[in-house]
Design a protein around this nucleic acid. Structure first.
Length: 854
RNA sequence: GCGAAAGUGGCGGAAUUGGCAGACGCACCAGACUUAGGAUCUGGCGGGUAAAACCGUGGGGGUUCGAGUCCCCCCUUUCGCACCA
């Protein structure tokens, strides 16, 4: 151990003081490899639990900087909680089913399993090199049977509960993935993975999970998720898209068609129904087929409308579609006034929302107004907005009025009541007469989970000619995904080409049957993986409920950290799964995640990193050049974690320099062999030592407060830098023995602890340098003392008429009279107020003085 | 179109509650040490001025003794939603 210097002599700065991250990190990396229990959560602990989770990665081959940032945040928190005495669960796993493995299989002839496991090995090694403190004994790999068998087990439970069903439906088909996408995976009409590939529509038999059963609860419980970003809650609320309204049946005039004699429309504005001047059908509405059967020209027009709508949907421009429609010359009867109104077919009416039919009220709906203008349909005023002058409005209405705040007019017996009142009364009337009822519609759809792909969880179902659809008995799970399958991107599941997989005997009758060849959407895997972590090696159940109960408590995972791109899909499916498991009696919590944190992206030169732009920063390269500590610390220092981070290569060099400064300070000042080193620090300190002490306690406060609060680790690190700068400034005082060694030992110990969550390698090295033997991870977090953090003297700015004129230095506890006296005695202040009348003296205690003069 | 967040030096960012704008770091400049410096240490660093004055947090107004922070209007950027009846 290098000793400090003799009193009075300036500190020598030999070359071996150089901070060599590679050597230090290699040393600790090797030690940590040999201690698997280092980061293990304690199984039967009386300590308070803390479950911190980062979103598990897809094993694409290598980590990127976004991962490093995500995990650096979680790791800092985990280490902080350990040091605060919690029993911490900090696991990691692999979201390892999915299409890229198949693409890789095709392009370089490697089986998906091999490719995936190799990527996992590589990324795991990267994580270890970065020093992340994961409990690897709980590692979850979703593509292995010991995990996906439980997906199958859950599928059987869903089936028993009637929560999964088969339905023939139009599906979104991505030609590049050669598979079905859930609605949620379609972004602006394109595939969420292939942003430039338009999604097509195909008709297929699919398995659907009845997520809509929980729509109401998923919406309601969003209000409880106070630890989630408002933004995410809003996105989920929009996604669920709850809408209260009324279903109203319009009879068809004349001969009823075979599809029925009524058109059911959904409206949120039944109060405007006396203003309905047409009924509009979606081009794909079932009734349309009847209308076009003996009407060739109409059929052609409808085809046109369908094509327009489809194209608009595919390009994501459905919001701006140019409205087109065609008059069927059929009529519907308004049940409220018996009036016959024309039935139109229009390209902006969507079949997959509500009933696919609407009543058109041009005077009180923007869209209907546009449409009526274009086709010269009647526009009838039935709402008078509050605050409008009736006569003026009647004479020259500035339509459309879409407000709910108004009075119903021209509406028979309802004229004169408020909109809200009319909705109630008219709905009640419709229910009484049997032609309508109050309804709630959701934008949220059931979750289509079938994928015509190989690399996923086989759906445990069998099709028997005699018995139909038969679930695979639980004892036969898992249905193993066969290997050596020829993967192609042609349509249909590759599993269909594997006879030994497909051909089975029916579990019921023993006769010949076919296995389901579709696999599950990978969002199934990630919907419950965090429960598996609590009991990852259980081979008789997905997990033990009691163990999950300990880690999830009543409110779920204490802190979940990941990208905002998962704000809807992953998190809504996870919430669904939790509610489903709760209703199965497996768990007691209603929600999976108490606190959610969404970190910003890592960008460079103002743009997202991408291979195309050639601005990708490789973690491996950063670690090789600057070390893991520097890479991690910089990813926390460069921006607050919730904001985007603009990566600058010179920025990380600054961080490396800082780590070097810390290291060199310890090289010079860690003196565990000194006789005073382990003695308690004296209560009375010299001014130089007192200054350090004050700074130290201020720093502890700042760092601790941020961990508890807003997580601005960038300012925490700044604070630690300030402390280190203060120590450098004090080195002369240290050299002349004006700072007691025992006190300096305390300061250094605290500094190591403050650094430990952010730069674990260096912290461990320094800890050892201080002569400490115990596990740094379990060393208690330093506590600050408000008294010691207090300044003894403060500088008070003095303003005259709001402009800074001078500063006066006073004791921290000086009273107002004294401070004002000093301020008025100051020469610069005197000059500023000379010849003027002092009208007001403002003193904000400890902050500032403002003198108002005339 | 609707909603949210943001806009501060050459750059990343600080200022947590209305109270010294620019902490901390990068870049740059100067000095020290040095055979050397892409190491290290010290100092400087919003504009402006000889120094001051003065100006300065996207733009314009307002409230206040005092505004980056609060209110009103506008501009720009990012994100989310978008004929959802």
């Amino acid at each position: 151990m290098t000793n400090g210097t003799e009193a009075g002599a300036p500190a020598p700065r030999p070359n071996d003081e150089r901070y060599d991250a590679q050597t230090i990190e290699k040393k600790w990396f090797e030690r940590w490899q040999h201690d698997a229990s280092l980061y293990a959560a304690e199984p039967n602990s009386t300590k308070k639990k803390y479950y911190v989770l980062e979103m598990l990665p897809y094993p694409s081959g290598a980590l990127h900087m976004g991962h490093v940032r995500n995990y650096a945040i979680g790791d800092a928190l985990a280490r902080y909680m350990w040091m605060n005495g919690y029993n911490v669960l900090h696991p990691m796993g692999w979201d390892s089913f999915g299409l890229p493995a198949e693409n890789a299989a095709i392009s370089n002839n490697t089986p998906p399993r091999e490719w995936t496991l190799r990527n996992i090995a590589n990324m795991k090694a990267q994580m270890k090199r970065l020093g992340f403190a994961y409990d690897w004994s709980r590692e979850v790999t979703t593509c292995l049977p010991d995990y996906y068998r439980w997906n199958q087990w859950f599928f059987l439970r869903l089936y028993e509960q009637g929560l999964v069903y088969r339905k023939k439906s139009k599906v979104n088909w991505c030609p590049k993935c050669a598979t079905v996408l859930a609605n949620e995976q379609v972004v602006n009409g394109c595939c969420w993975r292939h942003e430039d590939t338009q999604v097509e529509q195909r008709e297929l038999e699919q398995w659907f999970v009845r997520t809509t059963k929980y729509a109401e609860e998923l919406l309601r419980d969003l209000d409880r998720l106070q630890g989630w970003p408002e933004k995410v809650r809003t996105m989920q609320r929009n996604w669920i898209g709850r809408s209260e309204g009324t279903l109203v049946d319009f009879e068809l005039e004349g001969n009823a068609g075979p599809a029925g004699s009524k058109i059911s429309v959904f409206t949120t504005r039944i109060d405007t129904i006396f203003g309905a001047t047409s009924v509009q059908l979606a081009p794909e509405h079932p009734l349309v087929a009847d209308f076009t059967r003996y009407n060739q020209p109409l059929g052609a027009s409808v085809q046109q409308l369908i094509a327009e709508q489809r194209k608009a949907k595919e390009t994501g421009d459905i919001g701006e579609i140019e409205k087109h429609g065609v008059n069927t010359h059929r009529y519907a009867i308004n049940p409220f006034n018996g009036e016959r109104i024309p039935i139109w077919i229009a390209n902006y009416i969507l079949m997959d929302y509500g009933t696919g039919a609407i009543m058109s009220v041009p005077a009180h709906d923007d869209r209907d107004y546009d449409f009526a203008q274009k086709y010269k349909l009647e526009i009838r005023l039935v709402i008078l907005p509050v605050g409008n002058d009736p006569e003026e409005t009647m004479a020259e209405p500035k339509l459309p009025f879409t407000t709910h705040d108004g009075m119903v007019i021209n509406s028979g017996p309802y004229s004169g009541v408020s909109c809200a009142e009319a909705v109630k009364k008219m709905t009640a009337y419709a229910e009484e007469k049997g032609f309508g009822k109050a309804t709630v519609t959701y934008r949220l759809k059931d979750w289509g989970i079938s994928r015509q792909r190989y690399w996923g969880t086989p759906i445990p179902m069998v099709y028997c000619e005699k018995d139909g659809i038969v679930p695979v008995p639980e004892k036969d799970l898992p249905v193993i995904l066969p290997e050596n399958v020829k993967v192609t991107l042609a349509g249909g599941s590759p599993l269909g080409d594997v006879p030994e997989f497909v051909n089975v005997t029916c579990p019921k009758c023993g006769g010949p049957a076919r296995r389901e060849t579709d696999t599950m959407d990978t969002f199934v895997d990630s919907s419950w993986y965090f429960y598996r972590y609590t009991d990852a090696r259980n081979d008789s159940a997905p997990f033990d409920g009691k163990i999950a109960q300990y880690w999830f408590g009543d409110r779920g995972i204490d802190q979940y950290i990941g990208g905002v791109e998962h704000a809807i899909l992953h998190l809504i499916y996870s919430r669904f799964w939790t509610k489903f498991m709760r209703d199965l009696g497996m768990i007691t919590n209603d929600e999976p995640v108490e606190r959610l944190f969404t970190q910003g992206m890592v960008i460079k030169e103002g743009r997202k990193m991408s291979k195309n732009l050639g601005n990708v920063v490789s973690p491996d390269e950063m670690v090789a050049r600057y070390g893991a500590d520097a890479a991690r610390l910089y990813s926390l220092f460069a921006a607050p974690p919730d904001r985007d981070l603009d990566w600058q290569d010179t920025g990380i060099e600054g961080i490396q320099r800082f780590l070097g400064r810390v290291y060199r300070f310890f090289i010079r000042n860690a003196r565990p062999d000194h006789p005073d080193w382990h003695k308690p620090a004296p209560a009375e300190l010299s001014p130089a030592a007192r200054a350090i002490q004050r700074k130290l306690h201020q720093t502890i406060k700042r760092v601790s407060d941020d961990f508890q609060g807003r997580w601005h680790f960038n300012t925490c690190i700044s604070a630690i830098m300030e402390l280190v700068n203060a120590l450098y400034a004090a080195e002369e005082a240290i050299a002349r023995n004006a700072v007691p060694v025992s006190f300096l030992a305390d300061v250094q110990r605290s500094l190591v602890l403050l650094v430990a969550p952010f730069a674990p390698y260096l912290a461990h090295e320094l800890w050892e340098m201080l002569g400490e033997k115990g596990n740094l991870l379990k060393a208690p977090w330093p506590q600050y003392d408000a008294e010691l953090a207090k300044e003894e003297e403060i500088e008070i700015p003095v303003q005259v008429n709001g402009k800074l004129r001078s500063r006066v230095t006073v004791a921290a506890d000086a009273d107002e009279t004294f401070v004002l006296e000093r301020a008025l005695a100051d020469d610069k202040v005197k000059a500023a107020i000379a010849g003027k009348q002092l009208v007001k003296k403002i003193y904000v205690p400890g902050k500032m003085v403002n003198l108002v003069v005339k």
